[in-house]
């Protein structure tokens, strides 16, 4: 058993997240019912597609041992810009591309500050968070509504795959599809390419990665660009679903995304983590909201306490495992 723990210590937290997810579904199904059905699961995916995308982007940064606090604010800026431009008559497809590019530009700025000027990731991305939030507020402080017939809303069009009885339909949206493509792409890049290997090597030990002749600088700029770009993608998906953009959109989402990544088994010190884990982590958070709503007796004020508690349990689990690994 101990040998198994040591051998599998890196994957165990991720497996633990999957177990918790399944257990939460089982508990919800037994206690409240109507969890394990098409409509609930479809909604879980649709409502959390943006969080999944964010968490996947953040996984890259956190595996290198960095952090990106700017993603929530980047979503606010890109979605307000996008909606304003689309309403001003710009080509909506161009607007969507522009939203993603702007996100990437914020990531690039963070990356250059961190790598080229030696600013700590926490401070550099904090600056980008302030900048994006402030710029979004100068653009507009009112909720900007996207026209209902705007093609951007097609991203949230519902495809009914299985027409169940009553409203129990299996529904997918292009947004969910985009999230799935992002997850697959990120999995491929992180686990199957040189860039991905370098990301892990930097997280394991940056001096060693440098001595091995790996392109540390370029890779570290890349991870911030990836995180920023995916924040732009998440902004497109979220704005399309909601149809409204506001300067206060996405406040605290960087924390949700960090929580999802941590629950998924990625170490904040870097070097260990899985894309799949972050996806499960995001879904655990989403499912938790569903269960709290279903329960009805838990006051909504408790939500953040429960989120904090879950993160704490997972971090303690990781901590325990690392102790087991170090003392055979």
């Amino acid at each position: 058993m101990k040998q198994f723990l040591q051998h599998r210590a890196a994957t165990l937290p991720t497996i633990g997240a999957v177990v918790i997810f399944v257990a939460m579904i089982a508990y919800g199904e037994i206690a409240y019912g109507r969890i394990l059905q098409f409509s609930t699961l479809s909604n879980l995916l649709i409502n959390n597609a943006h969080l999944v995308i964010l968490a996947v982007g953040l996984t890259f940064v956190i595996v290198t041992g960095g952090i990106d606090l700017s993603v929530g604010a980047v979503i606010a800026f890109t979605s307000v810009t996008g909606v304003l431009l689309a309403n001003a008559g710009w080509n909506p497809w161009l607007v969507m591309v522009l939203m993603v590019v702007i996100g990437g530009a914020f990531g690039l700025a963070s990356g250059i500050l961190v790598e080229y000027f030696g600013v700590q990731p926490f401070i550099a991305t904090l600056a980008m968070m302030f900048l994006a939030r402030g710029l979004a507020s100068t653009l507009s402080t009112n909720p900007e509504r996207l026209a209902d017939d705007s093609p951007i809303r097609l991203i949230a069009a519902e495809w009914k795959l299985v027409d169940g009885p009553k409203v129990n339909d299996l529904i997918l949206t292009p947004g969910v599809l985009i999230a799935a493509i992002v997850v697959l792409g990120a999995w491929f890049v992180l686990h199957r390419t040189r860039l991905g290997r370098t990301v892990y090597a930097i997280g394991g030990s940056e001096p060693s990665a440098l001595l091995m002749g790996l392109p540390v600088w370029r890779t570290k700029v890349w991870v911030y660009v990836i995180s920023g770009t995916l924040a732009g993608v998440a902004a497109v998906v979220y704005t399309a679903r909601l149809g409204i953009a506001q300067n206060i959109t996405g406040i605290g989402w960087e924390l949700d995304a960090i929580a999802a990544v941590v629950i998924g088994g990625t170490l904040l010190t870097g070097g260990v983590g899985y894309v799949a884990g972050s996806v499960v982590g995001a879904l655990v958070l989403g499912l938790m909201i569903v269960l709290i709503t279903r329960d009805g007796k838990i006051p909504p004020e408790m939500t953040t306490i429960i989120t904090g508690g879950i993160v704490l349990v997972f971090v303690l689990l990781q901590r325990g495992l690392s102790v087991v690994r170090r003392n055979p």
Binding site: V119, I123, A124, A127, L131, R133, L135, S137
Partner: peptide, 25 residues
């Protein structure tokens, strides 16, 4: 200036000060 835009100015201050402190600059 609207108070909600304050963060943008803080960002400018952070970036400028960090750059002034960086070895390269």
């Amino acid at each position: 200036v609207p108070a909600s835009a304050t963060p943008a100015f803080k960002a400018v201050v952070i970036v400028v000060l960090c750059l002034l402190q960086s070895q390269r600059v």
